[in-house]
Design a binder for these strands. Structure first.
Length: 212
DNA sequence: AATAGGCTCAACCGCAGCTTA
DNA sequence: ATAAGCTGCGGTTGAGCCTAT
């Protein structure tokens, strides 16, 4: 490997230049930031450095025990979807979460312990399979989304259907065998309640979503 | 005190999906 | 419609610190 391809840590002078350039060009125009900064860093490196260390929204303190616990729980829900986890951990980057998880993984493996602590393990066992009725309900909702005019859900107005469309943009993230949880911050409570009311009226006998 | 091995974290890579011209 | 450029993501790797011997 040549010296050109080696990892090169950012100096404080480079950080200052980057901060100044982001102020001038904004947080979205990384090619311009890279060009005008005079740094020999590409746009991706600039973006990464900003998001992981320099952004005023970033929390540079070590993880708290509560955050560590949250990461383990979130991993049991999302798997390796680091960017989704950042939505539950304000100020934390996907890279940090991933690093924490990898360290956790190594420790658990070394100690011959199961991946998740017992309380999370038992939560998972209670939801390992989607029941046939839940699968039917999911398919009904999918069908109503694909053909909203042919199968309008009985009590959903246009606004609620829009909310559901937003939900389904990320639905596959949640449709792992052991997860049907959603974050109530991301969706209107009224819309979720309406879905559950409609589902219960179909005699499938269960609520589709728990609120995280 | 020297050093080898382990560990952590920052940085980089490659790819997929999106945007724009 | 399409090609080029950009963004964001998850996986991987290397530098440097820490610890045990």
């Amino acid at each position: 490997m040549t010296s050109n391809t080696r990892k090169r840590p950012w100096s404080s002078a480079e950080d200052e230049k980057l901060i100044e350039c982001v102020k001038q060009n904004g947080e979205r125009n990384w090619p311009a930031v890279a060009n005008f900064s005079g740094l020999s860093r590409d746009s991706k490196s600039c973006r990464l450095r900003w998001l992981n260390h320099l952004s005023p929204r970033h929390n540079n303190e070590p993880f708290t025990p509560e955050e560590e616990c949250t990461i383990i729980q979130l991993h049991s829900i999302y798997g390796n979807k680091w960017s989704l986890m950042t939505k539950h951990l304000p100020g934390r980057s996907d890279n940090e979460i991933k690093n924490y998880w990898n360290t956790w993984l190594k420790r658990r493996s070394k100690a011959n312990l199961p991946l998740y602590p017992s309380e999370i393990q038992s939560q998972l066992q209670n939801q390992t399979e989607l029941s046939p009725s839940t699968t039917v309900a999911i398919n009904m909702i999918r069908a109503s989304l694909e053909m909203p005019h042919a199968h309008p859900p009985p009590s959903w107005d246009t606004h609620e259907q829009d909310d559901l469309s937003v939900f389904f943009d990320t639905f596959d993230e949640f449709l792992s065998p052991n997860s049907i949880l959603v974050d109530s911050n991301d969706f209107e409570q009224g819309a979720i309640d309406a879905y559950n009311t409609d589902l219960s009226s179909t005699n499938h006998g269960e609520q589709l979503f728990n609120i995280f």
